[in-house]
Amino acid sequence: MGWDVSQFERSLLSVTDATRALYVREIQRFIAWSASRGVNLPELVDRSHLRLFLAELSAPSGTTLSRTTPSRTTPSRTRASGRTAPGHTSDSTSGQTSGHTPGHTPGHASGQASSSQSAHAELGPKSAATIRRILSSLRRYFGWLAQTGRIDHDPTANLSAPRGAQRLPRVMNADQVHQLLDPAEADAAHRMTGDPVTDARDNAILELLYGSGLRVSELCGLDAGSIDLAQRSVTVWGKGAKERRVPISEPAVDALHRYLRAEVARATPQPGPVGGAMVDPREPRALFRNKRERRITARDVRRIVDRRSSEPIHPHTMRHSFATHLLDGGADLRVVQELLGHAD
């Protein structure tokens, strides 16, 4: 049987398109590297093979670590489907008759040389975070192979990756928060756009980022119906398409009231071309929109923070600050995790 990457990709129903593409890319990287080592079947992958792969990811560029091809033979039990690895001919199932290592595809030697060069060109040195991400992809893939009976056991079980040095996230102090959310009149003059609706929108965005600890993606995805000002709460869709309800701070409620009132004076755009773009009347009304009346983007949010802050601050810093300031104020860790939408 082959690697069945396409079937694995179709099984990923609970992840985003970007995450699915990342899984497939990392697995294909591993498959190309494995082919350069004469391992063309997932049944031949063991812990030592995976450890060697992870070691080469962290090795300096151009370094190739050595290990003999796994001595195990192809498992005797066969699959009824008779599937072969993608791109291989059916002759690969009888590779031993041509004097090749089990799992080594006959007639593939020339392609293997270029595959080896390509695989090694993509390896090392990788950061510890990147190695952990790649290992996570491999765990998901080999776990799926084991669960679906394609392999006898999961070789990634209990396999660990280097943690590396951990950088503490930056946290804003009280003065920085005050300057960003309540700037002095002299400072505010050159940081505002001069448009009442835009300035009110920006105030509401900053208050939600800090006061509710929203991710930028969550804020950009808010619809007009996501906000319940009477209950002082907002419903957001976090990672993994998980919905959660988050309280809104009093300053954020006030900022949202001012923003919504300011919008009343602006005529509701009609379906059709707006600023060179088409607005689909069937789409939910976005809470925050840009000048083209399209849903606000992460880049728009970054520009707002850059314009309103006197020093470089990443929008995600406001989320870290929200959590840290709550904990410093005596909030329970588990409550803060739930507010942030962390699974654990």
Score class of each variant (00 low, 15 high):
Ile151Ala: 06
Pro106Ile: 01
Arg170Trp: 04
Ser137Asn: 05
Ala230Arg: 14
Leu138Val: 03
Ile134Gln: 12
Pro125Met: 03
His104Leu: 10
Pro155Asn: 11
Pro102Cys: 00
Trp144Pro: 05
Asn203Trp: 05
Arg140Gly: 12
Leu229Asp: 11
Asp175Glu: 14
Thr101Ser: 09
Gln117Ser: 13
Ser92Ala: 07
Thr105Tyr: 05
Gln117Phe: 07
Gly194Pro: 10
Thr193Asn: 02
Glu122Gly: 06
Val171Lys: 07
Ala157Pro: 00
Ala230Thr: 15
Ile151Gly: 05
Ile227Cys: 02
Asp91Leu: 12
Asp195Ser: 13
Ala128Leu: 03
Ala224Val: 11
Ile227Gln: 00
Glu207Asn: 04
Asp152Pro: 00
Thr235Phe: 07
Ala200Asn: 06
Ala224Trp: 08
Val216Ala: 08
Val197Met: 11
Gly149His: 13
Arg150Cys: 11
His178Leu: 13
Ser90Glu: 08
Asp187Glu: 14
Ala157Lys: 11
His120Leu: 14
Leu145Ser: 10
Ala189Gln: 08
His178Ser: 12
Val236Arg: 08
Gly111Tyr: 06
Ser115Val: 11
Ala174Thr: 15
Leu181Asp: 03
Ser212Asn: 04
Leu135Cys: 03
Trp237Thr: 15
Tyr141Asn: 02
Ala157Leu: 15
Leu206Trp: 01
Ala113Asp: 05
Leu222Lys: 11
Cys220Ala: 15
Pro106Lys: 06
Ser98Cys: 02
Asp91Val: 11
Thr105Asn: 06
Arg201Tyr: 02
Gln96Leu: 13
Arg163Met: 06
Leu214Asp: 04
Arg232Pro: 01
Ala189Lys: 08
Pro106Gly: 06
Gln112Ser: 03
Gln117Trp: 08
Ser94Asn: 10
Arg163Gln: 13
Ser110Gly: 07
Asn158Thr: 14
Leu181Met: 05
Ile227Asn: 00
Leu208Met: 10
His104Asp: 09
Tyr210Thr: 03
Leu209Pro: 04
Leu138Arg: 02
